[in-house]
Design a binder for these strands. Structure first.
Lengths: 225, 225
DNA sequence: TTTATTTAATAGTATTACTATTATTTTTGG
DNA sequence: CCAAAAATAATAGTAATACTATTAAATAAA
């Protein structure tokens, strides 16, 4: 099993890059170091010039892979959600009890991220920080609708669909499975942020993770058939 | 009552501006038109130069009121939360039944915003759009902690506190009143955004507003004493 | 009415977010 | 293994951004 998983690739829509970064060493360096750099200095201060310097390559080389830094952010965000869905699939595989499965899913979604040895060039912890701190900037723009049309948020939407389906399996009569799914997914990012920077307006801590809070929430809202 | 309320001023921490924009005609023009402009072109494209042109004044004049556009965003965000708290206070005043009061509070928080004639120079609908689309950019920065120390998010935090207190009044045993309060407040902004741009991953519509969804959620989670 | 304050106009700077061109290196296909 | 193609690196250039600084003109306050 572990061996089998070593050749995995999260496939991200090709409209998000000019040249597939997974197709070359330089491309993987761009992704790997770009994630570290954004985590370190923040998306606003991040530039392709700085990234070029960091990987001892050139600004223009980075531009050959991504149109601009916004596309880069959308790309790594998609990668993250693809990776999450993949984890969710593995973690819930074989669980036949629908309630138990949903609880497991929430745990995977809302628990703090740990390093994944299966993807060597990507630091998942740094990426998770980016998802918490920067990812909303990928859709909070005037071009959302256009980008959405081009499928730039597909992996996120697919994940929401999957979770909402799990919700409906537990309680087919519940009227807001989509909203609840997005509340859990995006809300847990937000609670992570709050526990780090605004600890006095959240109950989430290192012990009581957002996962605990949301599992409790969902168990109260849904009435198992 | 209406007459009394006409001289209201939402007071925003003075560390957020260089010169109080409420203290002059130009200042109010900056606020009023700045809100319209950000709503129109988005925060990234918004500059003080463009705002200067719009109000037929000068870029440098705007800089005498605000250090930079980020401060401007934090200022109007604070104004919004101050205004919301004010509305909440009025709407829940005199309701003695704690459950009813919390439901009313959620309604005020999560319902789409309407124009408020009491503040002539501010277009609350445009401002609400900004809160939905841009406000998270005010805290998703590398300087959050520093800014937070200076009290730049106080009005938001005060509102969360107030709502969490209402939650605890309904169910003193509930363990996550803060997280639930932030989930309702920020989650409803998010659901508004989704219903506008990602309608197929939310159940919220013009009829089923986030307010309906969150009122249901809270009623399920809390067990009235 | 003079002084202080506010506002407007102009100019200037470093950085950003790119594009374009050319040179050099690497890859690959016959 | 060599030539052609593709990828990468280096350099230069541009318009816009996010400011700062200075000075002039208008307005308000003492």
């Amino acid at each position: 099993m572990e061996e089998l998983l070593k050749n995995l690739k999260i496939s991200v829509s090709d409209s998000l890059y000019l040249k597939d970064p997974e197709s070359s060493e330089l491309g993987r360096k761009i992704i790997g170091n770009g994630i570290i750099l954004i985590d370190k200095i923040g998306f606003e201060k991040f530039t392709f010039k700085k990234l070029g310097e960091k990987i001892k390559s050139n600004e223009s080389s980075v531009y050959r892979y991504f149109e601009n830094k916004h596309s880069f952010l959308v790309y790594i965000t998609n990668w993250f959600w693809g990776w999450k869905e993949f984890q969710l699939t593995i973690a819930t595989y074989g669980i036949t009890n629908v309630e138990e499965r949903l609880q497991k899913a929430i745990e995977v979604l809302a628990h703090p991220v740990e390093e994944d040895i299966r993807f060597k060039h990507i630091n998942e912890v740094a990426l998770n920080n980016i998802i918490i701190n920067e990812s909303s900037k990928s859709y909070l723009t005037k071009k959302v609708d256009e980008e959405n049309k081009h499928g730039h948020f597909m992996l996120y939407k697919r994940l929401v669909n999957r979770v909402s389906k799990m919700i409906s399996e537990v309680d087919p009569a519940y009227e807001y499975p989509f909203s609840l799914a997005t509340t859990v997914i995006d809300g847990s990012l937000h609670q992570h942020f709050l526990s780090k920077h605004f600890s006095n307006i959240t109950d989430c801590t290192n012990e009581i993770t957002p996962s605990v809070y949301f599992k409790h929430m969902v168990s109260k809202i849904l009435i198992p058939k």
